[in-house]
Amino acid sequence: MRIPSWSRLSPEFRAGAREGFRTYLPLSIGLIPWALVTGVAMRGIGLSAVESMGMNLLVFAGAAQLGTLPLIAGGAPVWVILATALALNLRFVIFSAAIARYLQEHRTSLRWLMGHLLTDGVFAISMGPMLRQENRDWRLGFYLAPSAWGWLLWQVFALVGVLFAGLIPRGWSLEFMATIALMTILLPMARARPMLLAALAGGGVAVALHALPLRLGLFVGILAGIAAGMLAEGRAGPATAGESR
């Protein structure tokens, strides 16, 4: 894809890009510890520096990377690894559906790129301003600038983690930082009651069935969690089963 020079982009695109970047900048700092931890964790399971950065470029998703690393290290079957990666990414189907109407009228290749770059943070800042702005170039700028910035931060700090992972002694148990990173996305989600029950069921079943071969306990745990969340929502009624209250 050819990238035109900044001064030749439409003023609307540039205004949107500036606004999006400014809005996202403080939030984007939160990516740094995550990226560092992901870099260290990839080296931690025994990937080489090249393999680690290869994974980081091919899989642009902290949760999917950290979540599948122990499965790769443990030799889980491919379908369990992919099912786990899919489950960890499914929230983005909903984000994608919500933001799609603001990103239409662009080339398909550009829409694939925008999809690839979709993250929680950019989604969170985009929905409000996109609703208010009619201009499609402005929206494109508002979406692409912070997305590209987030991508860059992610790659750079993952690389820092990858390069310096070897200096950290094993006894420090830095792999636990991956667990902490995943907890920091889980906890804000679990504020709504059905979501909390989904998490408790998923976690509880996974612990209870941890001895099952092929990491099947994880898979059964995910299904149990989804079922528990839907049951809880059905009982509470859809009106009270909002996202976060």
Partner: peptide, 20 residues
């Protein structure tokens, strides 16, 4: 509805055995 609960369920199922 089902998709809404998948991420929380999956994250918890990944994290809980690491802790417990």
């Amino acid at each position: 509805r089902a998709l809404r609960y998948a991420p929380a369920a999956a994250l918890a199922a990944v994290v809980a055995p690491d802790i417990f």
